[in-house]
Amino acid sequence: MNSLVTKSVIRAVLLILLQGLVFRRIAFQMGDFAFIHLFIYPIIILLLPIRTPKIIQITVAFVVGLSIDAFYSSYGIHASALVFTAYIRNFVIKLLEPYSGYNVDESPTLSKLGFSWFLSFASILFFIHLFFYFSVEAFSFVFFFEILMNTIFSFIASILLVMLYQLIFRNDY
């Protein structure tokens, strides 16, 4: 149990630094197209152990979100989206529950729960997270087209990145 907490904290710190220092600077541009942004940090919330109390998930999301915001100097936008993601994570987990149930002490990783389960889990939460994030960033549905384009393209790029990350670090990191 203790090692799980340590692991989660180390993973969170490393991913925040990765997002803030590396992925923040990467924005693919194709012609007039700057819709692709890479997001990895929601995986911190996604990979919390399944039985983590909701209240702690939300608090972790608050802290992580604000640290990401500090890098992006966009106070509250990432945090707002991440808290929302953390808030709905348990619903999604319940929705996708396999017949055999979960081992509640573990993180819901690709190696534990299989490729297709993890893909659908990550897809749902990433899509919602990105849509929420870009909506809050635009702050008005006047920009609905931009929001949608940003969400779709960033979603594709980010989900590839996340699956890659899960395939590389198979041992529960």
Binding site: I55, Y75, G76, I77, A79, S80, Y87, F139
Partner: peptide, 27 residues
């Protein structure tokens, strides 16, 4: 508690966003 905390956080973020980010404040 979770729901209340969630709502409280979102209210805090909303205030933060409209007070610190200039574009959002304008909108």
């Amino acid at each position: 508690g979770t729901h209340l905390l969630f709502i409280a956080f979102q209210i805090i973020f909303f205030t933060l966003i409209i007070n610190i980010n200039r574009v959002h404040g304008d909108i």
